[in-house]
Design a binder for these strands. Structure first.
Lengths: 118, 118
DNA sequence: TTATTAATTAAGCATATGCTAATATGCCCT
DNA sequence: AGGGCATATTAGCATATGCTTAATTAATAA
């Protein structure tokens, strides 16, 4: 889930989401993205670091230029898996053990009226 | 895309992502979420406002309690559509007209050496 | 080697975010 | 009406984020 969070966080920002759409068309180098998105080359680098950390893009240096391409495979798989996870029940999501426990406790011992009255 | 951004932003935060997983199991009221997630009731309310704004959850008042449920349909559709959009090319994403224009300009007038040399 | 260009990293700043405590609102029951 | 919960909203604060400019690092070419 830490992984999913990273992915969603990466996608949940206007500039980066645009980058993903742009890279879905074709690979682009930093200077091109800079020109298209109208932000500093430094900003591009920083966003790319985040997208890379989420494994959403690949980086390839070609001479002095660094070209980025979209990892469409990973993106697609992760989102599909997320949807599947949602259908499989909480036990499938290991990183929520604590919360699952508390949920189960509530199921057995309804904390308050909210469950009793209905 | 504004929409997608809102959705990804909503999902890209640990507490809210947990909420989504929890609600995928069953609907829950604020006081239950408070207990499960161990944050203040105010925090729950605020997060729910964001999830609601992204249309990811539905809210139903039952007496003094408000129950939230996951809008799995919407979530699933939006993510699928996003993946489809990525395959359809930029023209499909209307909100990127400006960037598309600049991309096309670059395609015709390679800005610098990066395209000429390779 | 030095100069030039591209990209990354660091520093700094303004704004956004996530949370809590305090207050207000809404719903139910006397 | 008035008291008692559950939830929402507000205010305030500490931290995170997105950006810029400045300083480094990397690669190429003279």
């Amino acid at each position: 889930m830490k992984n999913l969070e990273k992915i969603f966080k990466a996608l949940g920002q206007a500039t980066r989401l645009k980058m993903v759409f742009l890279l879905s068309e074709q690979e682009l180098c930093v200077c091109e993205l800079e020109h298209i998105l109208q932000v500093s080359q430094s900003a591009i680098s920083q966003h790319m670091r985040i997208l890379k950390a989420a494994d959403l893009v690949n980086e390839e240096r070609r001479g002095q230029w660094v070209f980025y391409s979209l990892n469409k495979q990973v993106l697609s798989e992760q989102l599909q898996d997320f949807l599947k996870l949602l259908d499989m029940g909480l036990k499938a999501e290991g990183r929520m053990a604590e919360e699952l426990e508390r949920l189960q406790y509530l199921q057995e011992n309804p904390i308050v009226e909210c469950r009793i009255q209905n």
